[in-house]
Amino acid sequence: MRGVAGMIRSMRRYLRIYGRLAAASVRSQWQYRASFALYSASQLVATLAEFGAIWALYARFGSLPGWRLSEVAVLYGISNVAFALAEAGARGFDVFPGMVRTGDFDRLLLRPLPTAFQLAAHDVQIMRVGRLAQGAAILVWGCMGLGIGWDAARLTLLALCVVGGACIFAALFVLQATLAFWTIESLEVVNIVTYGGNQMAQYPLTIYRPWFRLFFTVAVPLAAINYVPLAALLSRPDLSGLPAPLNWLAPCVGAPFLAACLLIWKLGERHYASTGS
């Protein structure tokens, strides 16, 4: 029992510190209000244009084979809300390669907190609300258009999808940053699975080639947080071809995927300590 109480205490401490650090980031950004407003607005416009493209596709060609616009909107919404949440929390990992180059990462090592936690709490950006707001709006619109009964189970599943998706995108940011422990070269190539993954997840998986589907189901399990659970939401198990319980449980892969990436992060940190560069 002592162990559990201690764990709860340290969890609460971490949450409190995360809150304080996030609030500090927001206060820092608030010093540059104009930049904040412009960035949020430009993000909103950019992401609206993105969904506009999907809408235009439907207006012109009627439909993707077998897919209604509201269903695509749900896929799109889950992916973008998850991505926006991950981006807000994982911004520190985004700037991490620069911190290694300048030596600022050493400062994090001098504080009595795990480095991954400090990076997650570093420079939390609420400017990204643009993508979040737009993704959420389209998600709600899509959900209402599905014409299904929204019971507690389905709402929970939807929340799990968003959380699981945020975990996966965050894990990808962590993975990308981890590479900087080994090389200071630019790692834009990983954007293929982060930004590219978000783009991919906005469309139904069936429109892609089999190898591509397999990659985003097994290697980077993005399909598990929107395409597969959509089968459960719509009560159409034929969509995923999996046993029904799996459709419901699929979003849970997000957390272990993130945990695995954090373990790789630990390896990177150990490597850094022995090379110092």
Binding site: R16, R20, A24, R27, S28, G103
Partner: peptide, 20 residues
């Protein structure tokens, strides 16, 4: 390099360090 938060008042940095 500083370990303080660049855009925040000094006392806020101190308070954050107290938490950390």
């Amino acid at each position: 390099r500083t370990q303080l938060w660049w855009d925040l008042p000094v006392i806020d940095s101190f308070a954050l360090l107290r938490e950390i």
